[in-house]
C-alpha cells in the first residue's frame, strides 16, 4: 500500500473544488424548499439538492415587501433533514447573509435576484468564500461577469414564480447564441465583443475556445412541468432548478418525480409522454407578458 496522505496538506475552497461541486449536480433537479418536511419529500423523489428559502418565488410575488435570506434555524433544520446538498439564497450584494449561510454549512449559496437586492451596484466578491456560489444571468456577458466574481455555476434568471418558461428559454438562447457567435470570431473580434458587452476578456476567450461556459449552466425561472424541464435540457442546460413548480403543484410528489424523470428522458418523446401523463396538474402561474416592468425580477443585479 502507498504512503498515507494526512489531512494537513489539503487545499479547500479552490476553483476546482467549487466548480467540481457544481459539476456533480449535472443532469439533476434542484428543488426549492421552505420547510424540512418539503426537504424530506424532495430528497425522496430524487432531487440532487434542495434550495432553502423563506417562501417560494410565487408566494414572494404575492406577498410583496422585502424578501431576505431564510431564517437560520430553518436552514439548520433543512441541512439536518437531508443527506443531499442543501443550498440557500442570499440577497444580491449582501455579503453578510452569504457569510451566515456559509457558517451554517450550506453547500452552495444562490446570490439571487428573487430576493430584494441589498446592493444596487455590486455583487458579492465570491472568490473569497470557501462555499461555491450560483448566480443568475440573462445573457452571456452577465454570466461571465458573475463567473469573474467567483460564481461556480450559472443559471438562467428566467422570470421566477410565474410558471411561465418563456424568459428562461430567452436567456438560455441568448447565452448559447452568443457563444456560437464568439466561436466564429478571431482574437481581435472577441476583444471588441468583450469591450462592447462589458465582459471580462479572459473569460470571453476561454468560453470561445471551449465552445461553452467554463462552469455548468442550469435552467431556472418559470419551469413548472416535465415538458418545461425537457425543453430546457433540449436547449443545452446541464440541469434544472424548480422553484414554485413542485410544491405549488396539485401533487408535489408526482410532479417532482415526473420532472426528475423528464430530465433523463428529454430526448425520448414516448417516454416523456408517459412521464408528463403521470405528473398531475401544474401550478396555475401567470404569463410573463402580463407582468409590468417593476414586477420583473430578472432586471435586478445585471
Amino acid at each position: 500500500m502507498a504512503e498515507p496522505t494526512d489531512l494537513e496538506n489539503l487545499r479547500r475552497g479552490t476553483d476546482l473544488v467549487k466548480r467540481g461541486f457544481a459539476r456533480m449536480q449535472q443532469g439533476g433537479v434542484i428543488m426549492d424548499v421552505v420547510t424540512r418536511e418539503q426537504a424530506r419529500i424532495a430528497e425522496d423523489i430524487g432531487a440532487v439538492a434542495v434550495m432553502a428559502l423563506e417562501a417560494v418565488p410565487a408566494d414572494i410575488r404575492k406577498r410583496g415587501g422585502v424578501a431576505r435570506m431564510p431564517d437560520p434555524a430553518n436552514v439548520e433544520g433543512i441541512i439536518d433533514e437531508v443527506s443531499i446538498p442543501a443550498m440557500g439564497k442570499s440577497r444580491i450584494g449582501h455579503r453578510k447573509e452569504a457569510e451566515i449561510l456559509e457558517a451554517l454549512g450550506v453547500d452552495m449559496i444562490d446570490e439571487s435576484e428573487v430576493l430584494t437586492p441589498a446592493d444596487d451596484r455590486y455583487h458579492i466578491d465570491k472568490r473569497e468564500f470557501t462555499a461555491p456560489f450560483v448566480c443568475g444571468a440573462r445573457n452571456l456577458q452577465e454570466a461571465l461577469r458573475r463567473i469573474d466574481e467567483g460564481a461556480a455555476m450559472i443559471r438562467t434568471k428566467g422570470e421566477a414564480g410565474t410558471g411561465d418558461v418563456n424568459q428562461a428559454v430567452h436567456h438560455q438562447r441568448n447565452i448559447k447564441g452568443a457563444i456560437r457567435q464568439l466561436t466564429g470570431m478571431n482574437h481581435e473580434e472577441r476583444e471588441k465583443w468583450a469591450r462592447e458587452h462589458e465582459a471580462p476578456g479572459h473569460l470571453v476567450h476561454e468560453t470561445a475556445e471551449m465552445g461553452r461556459l467554463p462552469v455548468v449552466n442550469f435552467a431556472a425561472g418559470g419551469i413548472a412541468t416535465p415538458a418545461d424541464a425537457a425543453l430546457m435540457m433540449y436547449h443545452g442546460c446541464d440541469g434544472i432548478f424548480v422553484g414554485s413548480g413542485v410544491f405549488g403543484a396539485e401533487d408535489p410528489e408526482r410532479m417532482g418525480t415526473a420532472i426528475v424523470d423528464a430530465v433523463n428522458d428529454w430526448d425520448n418523446p414516448e417516454a416523456l409522454a408517459q412521464v408528463a401523463g403521470a405528473a398531475g396538474s401544474g401550478m396555475s402561474g401567470e404569463s410573463n407578458a402580463s407582468l409590468p416592468e417593476e414586477e420583473q425580477l430578472q432586471d435586478r443585479g445585471v
Binding site: 500500500m1 502507498a2 504512503e3 498515507p4 496522505t5 496538506n9 489539503l10 487545499r11 479547500r12 475552497g13 479552490t14 476546482l16 473544488v17 467540481g20 461541486f21 456533480m24 446538498p85 456559509e102 454549512g105 453547500d107 452552495m108 470557501t130 462555499a131 461555491p132
Partner: peptide, 26 residues
C-alpha cells in the same frame, strides 16, 4: 464533511509512480 470541507490533495496511490491530483467533493 460538507462542501466547505471538500478539498484537493496530492495522493499516493499504489501502482502509480507519481502522486495523483485527487479532488474530494463531499
Amino acid at each position: 464533511g460538507r462542501q466547505r470541507d471538500s478539498f484537493e490533495s496530492r495522493l499516493d496511490v499504489a501502482g502509480l509512480d507519481d502522486p495523483f491530483p485527487a479532488v474530494f467533493i463531499r
